[in-house]
Design a protein around this nucleic acid. Structure first.
Lengths: 255, 255
DNA sequence: ACGACATATTGATCCAGATCAATGAATCTG
DNA sequence: CAGATTCATTGATCTGGATCAATATGTCGT
């Protein structure tokens, strides 16, 4: 999809200058519940960085914590490393999502953030954010909500890693991505995976071979259509059933 | 330990009236970084409830979110349930720890909290806490720190569930409890488990039989001494090595 | 002190998914 | 565009821990 790529680049460079007020993500990002004139004060502390290339790091493990980041376009993965050098993917981050919230407590990053594709972010210096939140109750509330949601999502991950079988895990993952893309105005029925099979497997506590086999099986069963990185969800109802979660209806779309 | 029990009851009833300023936990709980006169304002919004009996719930899944709770004495487990009725323990909570932070975003509790023993808590109405945090930067900061730490701990759990073998998981769990008891002024070398083998297994993504076998094996290997609920750590160094984490020294004790 | 019921230990068997291995397809590089 | 390199698929085998089963060992209520 070469034409798609140039299109992306154009919209990127346009978005470079976009303030929160004009950003298409402001209904799902940090500015939720903040009124027009307060928004300018938030805008003033945000630093819109140049894009991070695929494979580049936004920050490394152990880096001093100074800012949180909102994904503007593209996507990131965050990962921790074990003593013996193994990597554990702790999350994938789409536009409108915040990364670095886990670093506030200890003032240093416990995970690294790596771009899965060309990705641009808004840098929000934490000291500024903290003092500003003294003045803006709405901002304070939204920060709380975002952190709370992250805690809840991480608990949900514990359920997936602790209780679910391989096929349930992958189905839940595909549905979750579908919901997240939908929330951002994209089709919930087809999207491109920006991460490798190995990343998915690592995130779900499975071997990459298992992911590959399951994609094939899901496809044979008519649940999805897989072409390389492209996923099409053919039978969302049944995929939900496989995941073993209450997610068949659009009502419960919250992540 | 019958004498111990009466002692606990006495200190409990004494503690019922204790304000944050006099509470032995105020160095690890919500009031960290809040000065003396600000503390009174925090005190004013906190409701010190009568103890919750073992097996009783502090809140259930789906309950309307109104307050967060700080454990004053005793301990709790929180757990989610899957569609098919299975339970996933998402955490154990010791004195000084907050529960309910995952409920802020959706205004209802995604997990239930159940007392593992007679447990008393401080109830902190969230709306009061939120407005108070507008006035107290220290309180705001501490809330952020606590939530950030929770996110980081949950990520750490993902590493444990996603990467570690059964013996690594249990060793890491025992060391983590040791660190947490130490932080509260108890011996890091011996403590009582307040949860069942089944709860531990569930939390760690293992069968209860596996936990039982590992306790036996760790004991045979001279790592620990197990007597029913009582755990004595005989060789902390080696137990850390088994857990496969950087936790042999006291420096890195942060949870 | 009694059964009744929950909790823990230990042994025997089984299987989901890991690991090992080989091949195929895309994408990168000079 | 040939060669190199990364990523994905598919098959064959192996194993850690689950599950099933039987038996202690508490602990609680009356």
């Amino acid at each position: 999809m070469p034409s798609r790529n140039t299109e992306t680049v154009v919209s990127l460079s346009k978005q470079m200058k976009v303030a929160c007020g004009e950003c298409s993500l402001n209904e799902i990002c940090l500015p939720v519940g903040i009124d027009k004139d307060e928004l300018h004060r938030l805008d003033a502390i945000i630093d819109r960085k140049r894009p991070v290339a695929r494979g580049e790091h936004l920050f490394h493990i152990g880096d001093r914590f100074q800012a949180i980041y909102a994904v503007r376009s593209g996507s990131l993965k965050t990962y921790a490393t074990t003593e013996d050098g193994h990597e554990q993917v702790t999350g994938f981050h789409l536009p409108g999502e915040l990364v670095g919230l886990d670093a506030i407590a200890e003032d240093c990053h416990p995970v690294a953030a790596k771009a899965l594709e060309t990705t641009s972010v808004c840098e929000i210096p934490f000291s500024d954010l903290e003092s500003l939140s003294g003045d803006l109750p709405g901002l304070r509330h939204q920060m709380m909500r975002i952190m709370s949601r992250e805690i809840r999502d991480d608990e949900q991950n514990m359920v997936i890693l602790g209780q679910k079988s391989a096929d349930e895990r992958l189905a839940a993952f595909l549905i979750s991505l579908s919901n997240r893309y939908r929330r951002r105005g994209f089709s919930p029925y087809q999207y491109n995976l920006t991460m490798s099979r190995s990343d998915i497997g690592n995130y779900l506590g499975l071997a990459l071979e298992t992911i590959s086999r399951l994609f094939t099986r899901f496809q044979n069963e008519g649940l999805i259509q897989v072409d390389r990185k492209h996923i099409e969800i053919l039978d969302r109802e049944r995929l939900c059933a496989v995941s073993g979660a209450r997610c068949a209806n659009w009502q419960s779309v919250h992540n």
